[in-house]
Design a protein around this nucleic acid. Structure first.
Lengths: 213, 213
DNA sequence: GTCTATAGTCAGATAGAC
DNA sequence: GTCTATCTGACTATAGAC
């Protein structure tokens, strides 16, 4: 193997461009040009555009969910709503530094936007992929939340996780818009501040009284 | 004008297909075939695919924001967080019945998904369009929320509105996935139930204590 | 206003030399 | 593994008959 970098360069470019423009709007030509590799390399290494998208996702979601599992494993008993919510949100929102060679830290921002996009754009395989990757972990989160908030039905907890995902995804995908529409009141570049705001909001949402039937 | 319906049929088809597949993934060919009109009619009536998307949005967002303004106008003093949150969410989530001829009520569900998609897919003109349509109204919402929750900074209120939009958009766009991932615990077809869940979550989020600095 | 026909462009994918 | 060259098909948009 002459250049082991080619595959990673394609993945990096795909991550950047899918995050910026979305999946359907990004062409393989643009993508491979951006990666500095030949057009044919994308299909050679990944088979199809769809499978390339899957590979991009898998590389990113896996470590996030691994960290979530670890934090659930190490959680003190009984767990608090706050600790569970943070275990859910923080791994996704913080720029996680992986192997620094392949993934310079400047890539962190792009990653955030990517995660926002894919939670939303829905060529069906993406949705199924998310379900596979998250189904079992979601059950663990709901189970722990049930312990921490005994008055709340599982159905309600599932809904609230769903809403939290939405708030997360929208924040990640459109963080740059918040500052604009709020006329500068919000600073989207302050990642820790954004994280605190989102965490507080989600904790409030999870702590709300059960809805009336 | 032989058929005054053509324009509306194109708008209806565009709404359905953009909601199902997204903007970039929907072709004018598919769209006009679905509408039962000629391919050229789309460009004749709307000039371009982009402008067609704008027309679809405008037809739907305008009445929602009109209802929001009315509800803010008629709000009792002092307003409660709950009333404001409901004035924000309900017009967007409820299937609003407009002129029944052009828009059969069966179209309501599709509309919801469309609104979810567009808040998220971001050919730039869409984002700008949303800012234009919502900037002034957003200011009114933040101002009222400041009255109802005097301890919360405007910045925090803007963030919380942003998160609420995200939860709303994700719920509308991906409502069908909730039932699946929760293994049937959540019923996405129960629109009033979903609305209650979302409202309770958002009220909880807005009622959370101010984040520490 | 509505249609057919087509121009002009760009897409994803592949064959085959190196 | 990498490249050039190309196939095949789909797209948006428009010109021009009716």
């Amino acid at each position: 193997m002459a250049k082991p970098e080619t595959k990673d360069q394609i993945l990096n470019a795909a991550e950047d461009l899918f995050a910026e423009q979305g999946f359907a709007a990004t062409s393989l030509r643009q993508l491979t040009a951006h990666a500095g590799v030949n057009l044919a390399a994308a299909n050679y290494h990944f088979g199809s555009k769809d499978d390339l998208a899957k590979a991009v996702l898998q590389r990113r979601i896996e470590p996030i969910n691994r960290e979530r599992r670890q934090r659930l494993d190490n959680m003190s008993q009984p767990p608090t709503i706050e600790a569970i919510v943070r275990a859910f949100i923080e791994p996704a929102l913080r720029n996680q530094q992986m192997d620094p060679g392949a993934l310079p830290e400047s890539r962190g921002a792009g990653l955030c936007r990517l995660l926002g996009r894919i939670s939303v754009e829905q060529p069906l395989f993406l949705q199924e992929f998310m379900s596979e990757q998250f189904g079992e972990l979601g059950k663990r989160f709901v189970a722990m939340l049930s312990e921490a908030a005994p008055g709340i039905a599982a159905e309600t907890l599932w809904w609230r996780m769903h809403f939290t995902v939405g708030a997360m995804a929208h924040t990640l995908a459109n963080a740059h818009v918040v500052g604009q529409v709020s006329l500068g009141a919000c600073d989207a570049n302050d990642h820790e501040g954004t994280l605190k705001q989102l965490t507080a909001f989600a904790i409030g949402g999870f702590s709300a009284a059960e809805v009336s039937r």
